[in-house]
């Protein structure tokens, strides 16, 4: 397909673009590593008190922490992917330029975001993960196929993550300013993706709800796939359902936005 080459080129550009922010990458690696250390010692203390909390043993809890730090930037769990640029383009009216092109807006930004995610997984994720693996007891799988399933789960997670952020960005067509929604998204994202604590540890109705929300598809589910804590088929179905729902919703909102709403500026 002709357009596959276009979106590949866009993804490659997303990758290169984020690769060019060297200082930001270095700072991010440092932050994720330090944050990982803090969380690991906190978790170790917690799991000393409550062994088997959330069904994880200590090694699994440690693995979970480092996985979170590894995926934090790649999955833009608190925002900060291409949607920041998209919001800015909507706010300033630059979006007009994107709209009179024969490219699909959603696919265009999705491709760019996947390129970004790929870079951030390598550039920002690998180091914290290695630190975790080398200096702490972890529960990483030895079977090759588990790693393959994990990769699939990551790809689905990236789609869900983009789906959420794309909707948030489109809201700027109506709100004209993305600061508020970005902050809400950041708080919800950090908590409900399980960056603070694995969602498994929350009991009762609240835990049920937290584990059913789309953010759960981003960190909790891939972590459980990696550590063999969940049935792979069910995990994929959950992620795919959210990915499809969010991307379809994104398309609907996109057509409403471009039809009824106004492009800013002369």
């Amino acid at each position: 397909m002709g357009s596959a080459r276009l979106y590949l080129a866009v993804a490659a550009r997303g990758f290169r673009r984020y690769a060019s922010y060297r200082a930001a990458t270095a700072a991010g690696v440092f932050t994720n590593t330090v944050f990982g250390l803090i969380l690991v010692y906190t978790y170790l203390a917690l799991w000393d008190e409550r062994p088997d909390l959330g069904g994880y043993d200590q090694a699994q809890a440690v693995t979970y922490v480092w996985l979170g730090q590894c995926l934090f930037a790649a999955l833009a769990l608190q925002g900060g992917g291409v949607e920041t640029e998209l919001m800015e383009r909507i706010r300033t009216g630059e979006i007009a330029v994107d709209l009179y092109r024969p490219a699909d807006l959603q696919l265009w930004w999705l491709a760019g975001d996947l390129g970004r995610a790929a870079f951030q997984l390598l550039g920002r994720g690998v180091v914290p993960f290695l630190v975790g693996g080398l200096f702490f007891p972890t529960a990483l799988p030895t079977r090759f196929d588990t790693w393959v399933w994990f990769a699939v789960a990551l790809l689905l997670a990236a789609l869900v993550s983009f789906g959420i952020r794309y909707l948030v960005a489109l809201s700027v067509f109506w709100l004209l300013d993305g600061t508020g929604v970005s902050q809400v998204m950041m708080i919800l994202g950090v908590f409900f993706s399980g960056m603070v604590l694995p969602l498994n540890v929350f009991p009762g109705g609240f835990g049920e709800v937290a584990r059913a929300l789309p953010w759960a598809a981003q960190l909790q589910v891939p972590a459980d796939v990696l550590m063999g804590e969940t049935a792979v088929a069910g995990a994929f179905a959950f992620q795919a359902m959210w990915a499809v729902l969010l991307l379809v919703a994104g398309r609907l909102v996109q057509s409403a936005a471009t039809r009824r709403v106004v492009v800013q500026g002369g």
Binding site: E94, V97, Y100, P102, G266
Partner: peptide
């Protein structure tokens, strides 16, 4: 999108 293939646009300010 169909039209986009047939038009060229220059917005001087963008």
């Amino acid at each position: 999108t169909r039209l986009a293939h047939r038009i060229g646009v220059v917005f001087g300010q963008r």
